[in-house]
Design a protein around this nucleic acid. Structure first.
Lengths: 157, 157
DNA sequence: ACCCGAATGTTTGAGGCACTAACGTTTGCC
DNA sequence: GGCAAACGTTAGTGCCTCAAACATTCGGGT
């Protein structure tokens, strides 16, 4: 959205959904650029971080934990194995499964991404005071949680 | 992101950029469903609303005002003309231009979309009190503006 | 011991939004 | 008159999310 700004912005720019979208796009761009400067993208960070936090896991489990669709796991894991940030090994006790685990350079890459990501948070929230940042996070958490509950976990018989 | 929720969420879910992304995705989904139930999508609403607010305009001007990339105008306008919500007429005084204008049913569709959109804002902000909603909007506006200024309007010689 | 349902990994495809690059036409200004 | 700029158009990329179909494998119940 590289709007060369001409005249006054339309009314609908003030709608919460729109503000949320615009701000999220800014954040996505910041993070996207930071990640792509080291050959990564959002999914890569999520997977590496989830692997480090929970340890090796099957692709399906990893996908559930990191909120990535099963269909997108294959490509993402392929990209990570190409870069040797992750290893894909068959599970001897269950031949359906691949066990994904972090490599040493995967862990190093994760450190890099975390660093870049932290810098992004600061750029993103630059205009806000510490208290304001905290309040924003709190409000967003409430919204996010609320809508998670009414979509995510609905596994009825 | 239809995460069937398994175990505890990863740490990175609490990062501002991520919360923003998740919440924006929820909002996008809400609005997307509301719009698609009447055969529209985000670009359509933006264009119709901008047309009503500023009047007929060329595709380029319309694109700048609505924040839609020139390259995406063609398809979007095509979709709107197919549905007869908009008219594309050559500008007699400048043969490069098409003048886009709202039709009567375009205006009716806009009313529908606005109604649905308002309902979405309410669902989106459901867990927040009126004061909290206002504070959220204020914080997001500050962030959005700040990042607009440092990307959007940089047209140097 | 067997069968059937469930889980797993995979491929293919889709959609929305944003953006880049290239091209031919037309304008407007110098 | 010539040249830069604007306009519309096409084609293609990227990211993130999701749906549908498939073959393999596991596991629980009978």
């Amino acid at each position: 959205m590289e709007n060369p700004s001409e005249e006054t912005p339309p009314r609908w720019e003030g709608l919460p959904s729109r503000l949320l979208g615009r701000t999220a796009d800014h954040a996505r761009r910041l993070v996207g650029e930071a990640f792509s400067s080291v050959g990564a993208r959002g999914y890569h960070y999520r997977l590496l971080a989830t692997l480090e936090e929970f340890g090796p896991a099957s692709q399906a489990a990893l996908g559930r934990r990191s909120g990535i669709h099963l269909s997108d796991m294959v490509a993402a894991i392929n990209e990570l194995t190409e870069r040797e940030l992750v290893e894909r090994a068959p599970d001897p006790s269950d031949r359906r499964r691949n066990i994904i685990s972090l490599t040493a350079s995967g862990r190093r890459q994760l450190r890099r991404l975390e660093k870049r990501l932290a810098e992004c948070q600061d750029q993103l929230l630059a205009p806000l005071s510490p208290e304001e940042r905290q309040r924003l996070v709190e409000l967003l958490s409430r919204l996010s949680d609320h809508h998670d509950r009414r979509t995510g976990t609905l596994i009825e018989p």
